[in-house]
Computed example of a mutant assay.
Amino acid sequence: MKNVLILCTGNSCRSQMADGYLAHFAKEKATIYSAGIETHGVNPKAVAIMKQDGIDISQNTSNNVSEYLDIDFDFIITVCDHAHENCPYIPSENAKRIHQNFSDPSKVTGSEVQIFNAFKKARVQIKSFCEDFVAAELD
């Protein structure tokens, strides 16, 4: 079984969505961890948009990367440029590091429809990335 860390700035939205999809697609092939270089709590809009696709992340917690320093990761995936550029040292020497920046839907302002569409767009992109990652790296 592989250990996969998904890292974002606040561990509230993009990393939480990736956590849900990776757990769904990887099943017993990997243990999925998500963390932030800060913790902002799980975004309720992320929970809602994932629920629409049948993925329940309502019990997820927002965790700081420092909580996982003792875990030997096989993969460390950063899902935003800020975390990629500011990530503290993680002592998993053999981890394959992958970076894929997704725009932050929680930063979108405007109507409820515009905000919903931003979350939906991020969900579609993250789902595709996670499906491809599992097929390429865990199968």
Rank of each mutant, 00 (worst) to 15 (best):
L5Y: 09
L5A: 06
L5R: 07
L7H: 05
L7E: 07
C8I: 05
N11Y: 07
S12R: 00
C13S: 06
S15A: 06
Q16M: 01
Q16I: 01
A18F: 06
D19S: 14
L22G: 15
A23H: 12
H24P: 14
F25D: 13
F25I: 15
F25T: 15
K27T: 13
T31R: 09
T31Q: 11
Y33P: 15
S34W: 07
S34M: 08
I37V: 07
I37K: 15
H40E: 05
G41S: 06
V42I: 09
N43K: 02
P44T: 04
K45Y: 05
A46S: 01
A46K: 02
A48W: 04
A48L: 05
I49M: 01
M50E: 03
M50T: 01
K51T: 06
Q52L: 02
G54C: 04
D56R: 05
I57A: 11
N60M: 13
T61D: 14
N64R: 13
N64Y: 13
S66K: 12
Y68T: 04
Y68S: 09
L69M: 14
L69R: 06
I71D: 10
I71Y: 14
I71W: 09
D72A: 10
D72H: 07
F73M: 08
F75R: 03
T78R: 09
V79S: 10
C80F: 05
D81R: 00
D81H: 03
H82E: 11
A83H: 01
H84D: 13
E85A: 09
E85S: 13
Y89P: 11
Y89K: 13
S92P: 00
N94W: 03
A95D: 14
K96I: 12
K96C: 11
I98A: 04
I98N: 06
N101K: 10
F102M: 14
P105G: 02
S106I: 02
S106C: 08
G110N: 01
G110D: 07
G110P: 00
S111T: 15
V113P: 04
Q114M: 09
I115T: 03
I115A: 02
N117V: 01
A118H: 00
K120N: 02
K121E: 03
A122S: 01
Q125L: 05
K127D: 10
K127N: 08
S128G: 04
S128V: 07
S128T: 11
F129P: 02
C130P: 13
A135C: 09
A135K: 08
A136M: 11
E137C: 10
L138D: 15
D139I: 06
